[in-house]
């Protein structure tokens, strides 16, 4: 069976920016077999090493894009020019993973739409609904983690 990593990132002290972290917690609570969970404020270089050890990786992040609840896409390797420390785009993490570790996990991004970004813990009601939708979407996939099923579930082409 494929080894899966669900990796949520964001700042839970900034309301809906914590959506990725909350999704990771939801997955953790459900204790799926062969599914590991991690979370952090930002993606960064060392995550290239982390994802190299899995077959399937799902990055989960809050989104300010005007999407319908959530969207799920394949992450393609990229080479961004960063202006400042200390965050990397998902594509750059994947690109670094390919180059440094010759590992080629299948990586997806689950964007969950957020609405409120103030200095407070807790999600807005709309974001809470979106989190529920996203969790319901992801759970059956990671319960039976087959790449083809993930690919078929992609909601937007990258």
């Amino acid at each position: 069976m494929s080894e899966v990593l669900v990796y949520g990132y964001g700042n839970p002290g900034r309301q809906d920016d914590g959506l990725g972290i909350r999704l990771a917690q939801e997955v953790q609570d459900r204790q799926f077999q062969n599914v590991s969970v991690d979370s952090n404020y930002q993606l960064n270089a060392e995550d290239a090493l982390a994802i190299s050890q899995y077959d399937i990786v799902v990055f989960a992040d809050a989104s300010t894009n005007e999407i319908e609840g959530f969207r799920f896409s394949v992450v393609q390797p990229a080479a961004d020019i960063a202006f400042t420390t200390h965050a990397m785009a998902p594509g750059s993490v994947v690109g670094l993973c390919h180059q440094l570790y010759c590992a080629f996990p299948k990586v997806y991004l689950l964007e969950i739409r957020g609405y409120a970004w103030g200095m407070a813990e807790g999600l807005s009601p709309e974001a809470t609904d979106n989190l529920s939708l996203a969790t319901s979407f992801l759970s059956p996939l990671i319960q039976n983690p087959v790449v083809e099923r993930f690919d078929q579930a992609v909601t937007v082409s990258s």
């Binding site: 700042n11 920016d17 404020y41 200390h86």
Partner: peptide, 14 residues
């Protein structure tokens, strides 16, 4: 440190 405090898809620092 410009990209403080939040991180969400669709951001652009500079």
């Amino acid at each position: 440190c410009l990209s403080c405090a939040t991180h969400a898809v669709g951001k652009m620092p500079l």
